[in-house]
Design a protein around this nucleic acid. Structure first.
Length: 593
DNA sequence: GTGAGAATAT
DNA sequence: AATATTCTCA
């Protein structure tokens, strides 16, 4: 609707392909110049006149020569209102009055004398830009008059016709109407006649999830390095949307991405030097953070999950290791480079990389005090729920990293549909862990996870192995809202299945072993929910089938821990969408925060 | 009053 | 097209 409105407002050229012919009347030569310049900028044909009498003469001489008259109220030779009357009577041309003072009575007088608008000096460009509508309306009015034989010149009726016209043509949206009122009020010109058209304004574009999705799709399709507002606009193919709209959004989008980049750089500054890192030698922590929508409540409790060895095997697409926000380090065993030819600087995936994972907990996670668990680090007998983490691709031009909308579904046994450009492939991490009996998790339930991208491009993947020695989990205590966490059921009827979307801005960096130890203080055992699906909206990376062996989760309270993440505030859940694999993860609310 | 988001200007 | 600035609204 807003889009349509916007487009309607930019069709002056269609209504007046020849250009509007404007007669400007003002005794002030300076103003004449200024107005002339502004009007010409609007592509109008401008005639200036310093005297009202002369203007009247001009008009009488050739009344077909002008479409509209703009006149100052205060003219030395003739009262502006008098001129207004004459013009209205003799030529029936729309007249816009203007003056430096906006005294209500004066404005009223102008309107009563037939002025179609009343502008205050200094006149703004945008006010002039839309004066053509007066002419347009007038024409419509005339047509109506002929049809209805209504010769009543009462301005109220005139106005109602304008409105009628506006409604039918969608020139003014509700928003504009409201704004119009507001403006009038603010100027103490409560008379509704005033500002009838001066408030015409471009409707603001609201970037809804859908719209943004289109935007992202377009960006991905074009390629992040080659993207431009115009191309995006073309691809989006949204009526009414302008290049400027897209440019503005793109600007914001880029800002957002760069902000994330910075955050990551700060949080994981050393990740670039991890290439020599050997997983076995260096215990890594995977930080999990409950990203509930009630961050304020989630003070404190943390759960650390320690595991002797977490084996992560998966498919690693052309992930820029550096881009992963992460917390876990893993080693890629296969370094096949499936990248597109346009990739100039293939990521070194073969080296050890970090993988950031932020996990939201399931609702029904049972947090039981489990002091004994602290000392016990027994291998878990069951396998774990599958977790998927989808990350929102970050801005990474060098890698040809494309931003891509994505949809993901964990549908076991489904044919593996590979993602298109590797770079753009939504990173997906599925983890399967063994849990203790205590956790009562059905291990045998581990399922392969598949990601399906909307695009049908093929994607090459490289298996990765990752060894994780410990996993830490941060869980907001007591804020776990069962409702929020209620997992949607898969159409297939599979048991609990939860999915979370969030915008990861992680900052869980690699921790030293010692740090890790600090986290293992007090504790409660946490069980992982089954089939936990997680969607993160950021970063590249595709890791699949991460197996966690012998994992135990402990709770610890350490307010000084470095696990704080603003992630907290950015999470957004939308269970409804989880039920439909074809839906996109909700992006609004976590887009540019 | 302030900040985010969008429009507009450069 | 990119970036800076301004505007608008919650």
């Amino acid at each position: 609707m807003p889009a349509d409105n916007a487009s309607s407002l930019t069709t002056r050229a269609e209504a007046f392909p020849y250009g509007l012919r404007v007669l400007v009347v003002d005794d002030d030569p300076t103003w004449l110049k200024i107005l002339e310049k502004m009007l010409k900028k609007c592509s109008y044909e401008v005639t200036t006149c310093g005297l009202a009498t002369v203007a009247l003469h001009l008009l009488r001489e050739r009344k077909d020569k002008f479409d509209i008259v703009i006149s100052d109220v205060n003219m030395p030779d003739m009262d502006g209102f008098k001129l207004l009357e004459h013009v209205g009577l003799e030529m029936d041309l729309p007249v816009i009055m203007m003056s430096v003072d906006g005294e209500t009575s004066r404005v009223m007088k102008g309107v009563q004398h037939g002025a179609c608008d009343y502008l205050l000096k200094p006149v703004r460009m945008k006010e002039l830009r839309n004066i053509w509508q007066h002419v347009y309306r007038k024409k419509i009015h005339e047509v109506k008059e002929i049809e209805s034989h209504d010769s009543n010149e009462d301005i109220q009726i005139l106005r109602s016709r304008y409105e009628d016209f506006d409604e039918r043509h969608g020139l003014f949206s509700g928003v504009d109407s409201v704004r119009k009122r507001k403006d009038v009020d603010s100027k103490e010109l409560t008379d509704q006649e005033y500002g009838d058209s001066s408030a015409v304004k471009k409707a603001r574009v609201v970037w809804t999830v859908d719209l943004h999705q289109k935007f992202v799709d377009a960006v991905n399709q074009i390629g992040f390095d080659k993207v431009g507002p115009k191309k995006i606009l073309d691809l989006m193919n949204v009526p009414g949307l302008t290049r400027e709209n897209v440019a503005s959004h793109l600007q914001k989008y880029r800002l957002y991405l760069s902000r994330l980049q910075k955050q990551n750089d700060v949080l994981t500054p050393s990740r670039n030097v991890q290439s020599e890192f050997c997983p076995k030698d260096l215990p890594v922590g995977i930080g999990f953070q409950s990203s509930i929508s009630a961050p304020q409540n989630s003070v404190g409790s943390r759960y650390v999950c320690t595991t002797q060895k977490i084996q992560a095997q998966g498919i690693f697409s052309d992930i820029q290791v550096d881009d992963l926000k992460s917390i876990a380090s893993f080693q890629a065993t296969d370094t096949k480079n499936p990248l597109r030819s346009d990739v100039t600087d293939p990521p070194k995936i073969n080296s050890v990389s970090q993988l950031g994972v932020l996990v939201s907990f399931m609702p029904n996670v049972d947090y039981k005090p489990l002091e004994q668990a602290v000392s016990k680090q027994q291998p878990l007998s069951s396998s774990i729920p599958v977790m998927q983490v989808m990350q929102y691709p970050k801005n990474n031009i060098e890698n040809g990293g494309l931003l891509q909308g994505f949809s993901s579904s964990s549908q076991p046994n489904q044919e593996h549909k590979l993602l298109d450009h590797l770079h753009t492939a939504p990173p997906l991490i599925s983890m399967s862990c063994n849990t203790t009996e205590r956790e009562k998790v059905d291990i045998s339930n581990t399922k392969p996870v598949f990601t399906e991208h909307r695009n049908n491009h093929t994607r090459t993947t490289s298996p990765i192995t990752c060894t994780i020695d410990s996993v830490s989990v941060h869980v907001g205590h007591g804020i776990v809202n069962s409702q929020t966490f209620t997992a949607p059921r898969e159409p297939s009827g599979s048991p609990r299945k939860g999915a979370f979307y969030f915008d990861q801005t992680s900052n869980c960096g690699l921790r030293s072993p010692s740090q890790e130890l600090n986290l293992k203080n007090g504790a409660e055992l946490v069980s992982f929910p089954e089939d936990l699906q997680l969607y993160s909206l950021q970063g590249y990376g595709y890791l699949e089938n991460v197996g966690l062996n012998g994992m135990e989760i402990f709770e610890y309270n350490d307010s000084t821990s470095e696990f704080h993440s603003n992630f907290y505030d950015e999470v957004e859940f939308d269970i409804r969408q989880l039920c439909d694999a074809t839906d996109y993860p909700p992006l609004d609310g976590c887009l540019f925060t």
